[in-house]
Design a binder for these strands. Structure first.
Length: 421
RNA sequence: GCGGGUGUAGCCAAGUGGUUAAGGCAGUGGAUUGUGAUUCCACCAUUCGCGGGUUCAAUUCCCGUCAUCCGCCCCA
C-alpha cells in the first residue's frame, strides 16, 4: 500500500472532534486567568539529562518510555515525557527568582508505550505549577483549580485520591521499614515488585497484584512515618480542602511514578475509563528546583491528560452543533459573483456565512442549506442578479422576502436580533 | 515489553475454498435549468489492511507484518 499512515500511537484530531479540545482549552484558560496563572511554553525537546536528573533514571517513564535520539551534533536529545521538568528548567534558566510563580501550560508530550484507548505515544497535557512557596494553601489552590476545571466541563463522579509521601528523612526511614517488612515475603511478591524491592520499594505499595496487595495490607503505613513537619503540612492540606468542601479519599498506597514528589500527592480518577482511569495526577515537589541546579525552591503542580478528558466529554455526548447564520444559494455567473461579494460583506458585519460553491440546481443547494443548520438562506439567481436584490428565506418558517442587496446591509442590527446573536 | 480479539467502500456492515463481493447511511448526477420532507432512477470496492505461502482456484486456510481494541505493566 502506497499511502503513508500516521505513526503508531499518534493521532490526527479531526474537525469532528476538535470541538471537545477547544472546549477544554477555553475552559482552562478562563479558570487560569481568574487565578492569575500565566502561560508558559517550553520547548518540546530537551537534553536527555534534564529528564534523567529531574524525573529519575529508575522510573519507567525515563527508563523505558522516553523517545531519545542523537542529533547532528551528537547530543542526546529527548522528546519531553512530561512538562514539569522543562518548566522548572526554564524557571531556573531565566532566573524567575523569589516570590510565588503561578504558571500553566499545554502541549504534546511523548512516551514510547503500547497505545490503547486514552493512551497514546504522543498525547496532550494541560497542567499548572505553583513555584516558590511551601504554604499548604498552594497545594490546595492547585487542587481546587483541577477540580474546578473538571467540574466546569460538566464532569462528575470523579474521585480525588490524596496521600502524603513525606520528605527526605521520613521517606528514608519508611523505605527501610518497608523493605525489612517485605523482604521475608520476597518470593511471594509479583515479579515487578521483586525487582522494585531494592530499586524503588515505595512503588510496590500500589501494585495491582492480588497477593502483593494482601502482603502490603499488613505493611507499616507511610503516614505513620511522617515527621512532625510533614504531618502538620498534610493535616493543614486536609483541613483546607474541607474548608473548600472538596471531597477526597485518603489513599496511603498512592505513590506517584516520578521521583520528584514530596509531601502531598494526589490523583483524580474516572471509573468509566476502566484501566486508564487517571485523568489528573500531581503533587508537591520541593526538591526538584534544587536538583536541577536552582536554589532550594518549593513547588506544587499537576497535569491532566487531555485525550482522557475528551473521552469523558464524549461519554457525556453533548456536542453542540455548529451554528450558522446564512447559507448562500446562487447560480449563474453574475449571481455567484454577487453572492461571493455579499458573503464577504456579511462576514465583515459579524455573521457566519457559508457560500455554496457547487453551482448545482437550487434544490440541491437548499438541501445542503438544510443540513448546514443555517438560520436563513440568501438566494441570488439570474433575476435577483439583474435587480441587485436577494431573497431572504428563513429556514424555520419558510418565509421569504425580496430585499435590495444594499438594503440588507443596512438592517444588520435587526438581523442579528433574529439570529439571536 | 508480554497475553488475547479484530481488520470487507468515507461510515455501519453481510458473506463464501469456485470465478458477477449483499444491504444500509453518506456522497454525486437525474426525475424537478429557481426552493428544504418523502419518493423514484442511475453512479459509487477489477477487490476484502499489507506481504508471502498452501491450492487447479484464497476475501475465506496458514505464516509474517502493520494498524486498532481489551487485559498486564505503567502512567495523563
Amino acid at each position: 500500500m502506497g499511502a503513508i499512515q500516521a505513526l503508531r500511537g499518534t493521532q490526527d484530531i479531526l474537525p469532528t472532534e476538535i470541538g471537545y479540545w477547544q472546549q477544554i482549552e477555553a475552559t482552562a484558560r478562563d479558570i487560569f486567568a481568574k487565578a492569575v496563572y500565566q502561560e508558559i511554553r517550553p520547548p518540546i525537546i530537551e537534553q536527555t539529562e534534564l529528564f534523567e536528573r529531574g524525573i529519575g533514571e529508575a522510573t519507567d517513564v525515563v527508563g523505558k518510555e522516553m523517545y531519545t535520539f542523537r542529533d547532528r551534533g551528537d547530543r542526546s536529545i529527548s522528546l519531553r515525557p512530561e512538562m514539569t521538568a522543562g518548566v522548572v528548567r526554564a524557571f531556573i534558566q531565566h532566573s524567575l527568582g523569589a516570590g510565588v510563580h503561578r504558571l500553566w501550560y499545554t502541549g504534546p508530550v511523548f512516551r514510547y508505550e503500547r497505545p490503547g484507548a486514552g493512551r497514546q505515544r504522543q498525547f496532550y497535557q494541560v497542567g499548572v505549577e505553583n513555584i516558590g512557596t511551601q504554604d499548604p494553601r498552594a497545594d490546595v489552590e492547585v487542587i481546587a483549580l483541577a477540580t474546578q476545571l473538571l467540574q466546569d466541563l460538566g464532569l462528575k463522579s470523579l474521585k480525588l485520591d490524596l496521600n502524603s509521601v513525606g520528605q527526605g528523612e521520613d521517606r528514608q526511614r519508611y523505605r527501610e521499614a518497608l523493605v525489612s517488612f517485605l523482604s521475608p515475603y520476597k518470593s511471594e511478591l509479583d515479579k515487578d515488585s521483586q525487582d522494585r524491592l531494592d530499586r524503588n520499594p515505595l512503588r510496590i505499595l500500589d501494585s495491582k497484584d492480588k497477593r502483593t496487595q494482601e502482603i502490603v495490607g499488613d505493611a507499616p503505613s507511610l503516614l505513620e512515618y511522617l515527621g512532625d513537619e510533614s504531618r502538620q503540612h498534610f493535616d493543614r492540606v486536609q483541613q483546607l480542602l474541607g474548608d473548600l468542601s472538596i471531597n477526597y479519599h485518603l489513599n496511603p498506597c498512592l505513590v506517584r511514578g516520578l521521583d520528584y514528589y514530596t509531601h502531598t500527592a494526589f490523583e483524580i480518577k474516572a471509573e468509566s475509563l476502566g484501566n486508564e482511569a487517571t485523568v489528573c495526577g500531581g503533587g508537591r515537589y520541593d526538591g526538584l528546583v534544587a536538583e536541577l541546579g536552582g536554589k532550594e525552591t518549593p513547588a506544587v503542580g499537576w497535569a491532566i491528560g487531555m485525550e482522557r478528558l475528551v473521552l469523558l466529554l464524549q461519554q457525556l455526548g453533548e456536542e453542540k452543533p455548529p451554528k450558522l447564520d446564512f447559507y448562500l444559494v446562487s447560480r449563474g455567473d453574475r449571481a455567484t459573483a454577487q453572492a461571493l461579494v455579499l458573503a464577504q460583506k456579511l462576514r465583515y458585519f459579524g455573521f457566519s456565512v457559508e457560500l455554496d460553491l457547487s453551482g448545482a440546481a437550487f434544490g440541491k443547494q437548499f438541501k445542503r442549506a438544510d443540513r448546514s443548520n443555517a438560520m436563513a438562506c440568501l438566494v441570488i439567481g439570474d433575476a435577483e442578479a439583474e435587480n441587485q436584490t436577494v431573497n431572504l428565506k428563513w429556514m424555520a418558517t419558510q418565509k421569504q422576502e425580496a430585499i435590495a442587496q444594499s438594503q440588507l446591509l443596512t438592517m444588520t442590527d435587526t438581523l442579528k436580533k433574529q439570529m439571536k446573536h
